[in-house]
């Protein structure tokens, strides 16, 4: 029996939608009570492996933070000083003294927030329609399946035609274009995650609310969306990160200095000053990486809470 392509894609996206609940694995892990605990050399080897993994994964990030708070004359020492001798915030001061970096930061923030809002609003519309009406109306069902195929089309394959489209319409250097572009890119993912929250128990609760006199929109606002909050949060974090980090489209469509995002502006900064001032560059890196990491940490906690309340599923 051959599975329809959409079915396979759907399975794949289920797997890809791990961030549906980033908290889940961490929350539910741990060995069962019956599990035999290995002892001795094997156990020691496991701890050693864990240490190596954590070092390889997180030391590069730590090295960036360390470099960002050291004066340049310490950074250029060779052999490198592994333990900092003096700490300073000068690199951050220099970074913000010139307004350009602040400009990039604001631009990226607006772009990421805008993309997140647009994607979530459109995602809620579409996911609600697909989840509620997919069984009755073919259009809604097809939309659900086809949008998943759209998720698999890599951005680079659309770069040239979209550039033709955007430049042809004279829309270069218009940040809202990027917001819609990012929304289009992330919408299939948002629909997929959100529609699972619009099913099951939520339907019963919604119908109960409507019997009690709520309008459909009232029920959506008071019952359905609160139930879907963990899904909204995780989708939102994912979209925010994507829009915050994206380089290819941003570099193609934003060329005016005052419109640049962090990805474009910081990579330019690296090309202009990198060799002379790694401290400054690393400070830019620290500021750029903070919002996604903070969001990830916060959202993970929120998700674990949401699961703890046993709201959905």
């Amino acid at each position: 029996m051959t599975a329809a392509p959409a079915t396979l894609v759907r399975r794949l996206v289920t797997v890809a939608g791990w961030n549906d609940r980033p908290g889940a694995p961490a929350a539910s892990g741990g060995p069962g009570p019956k599990r035999r605990r290995p002892r001795g050399a094997f156990r020691l080897g496991q701890y050693a492996a864990l240490a190596v993994i954590l070092a390889m994964v997180d030391l590069p990030l730590l090295w960036m933070v360390l470099t960002s708070v050291r004066p340049d004359q310490d950074i250029v020492q060779y052999p490198p000083q592994l333990v900092p001798r003096s700490l300073t915030l000068d690199n951050f001061r220099t970074l913000f003294a010139d307004g350009a970096f602040t400009r990039y930061l604001v631009n990226s923030g607006l772009l990421a927030v805008g993309s997140t809002v647009v994607t979530l609003v459109l995602g809620v519309f579409a996911a609600y329609a697909v989840a509620r009406f997919g069984r009755r109306f073919r259009i809604a069902r097809w939309f659900g399946e086809l949008s998943l195929l759209a998720y698999l089309i890599p951005g680079i394959l659309l770069l040239v035609p979209i550039a033709q489209l955007v430049n042809g319409a004279g829309l270069a250097n218009q940040p809202p274009v990027l917001i819609v572009l990012y929304a289009a890119h992330m919408l299939p993912f948002a629909i997929w995650v959100l529609r699972s929250y619009f099913r099951g128990e939520t339907v019963d609760l919604e119908e109960a609310a409507m019997v009690d006199g709520c309008s459909r929109f009232g029920a959506l606002r008071r019952v359905v969306l609160p139930q879907a909050l963990p899904g909204l949060v995780s989708t939102g974090v994912f979209v925010f990160n994507m829009a915050w980090s994206e380089y290819m489209f941003a570099a193609t469509f934003l060329t005016e200095q005052s419109k640049l995002t962090l990805s474009v502006g910081v990579s330019n900064l690296l090309d202009e000053t990198g060799v002379n001032s790694w401290g400054l560059i690393m400070a830019a890196g620290v500021v750029t990486v903070l919002p996604p990491l903070i969001l990830y940490v916060l959202a993970q906690r929120r998700l674990v809470e949401g699961l703890g309340e046993g709201a959905v599923r």
Partner: peptide, 16 residues
């Protein structure tokens, strides 16, 4: 963590 790190930041770190 690395999965959340923007490509441009990974670039800075590893070019250094």
């Amino acid at each position: 963590f690395p999965y959340m790190v923007p490509a441009v930041v990974a670039t800075l770190i590893f070019r250094y």
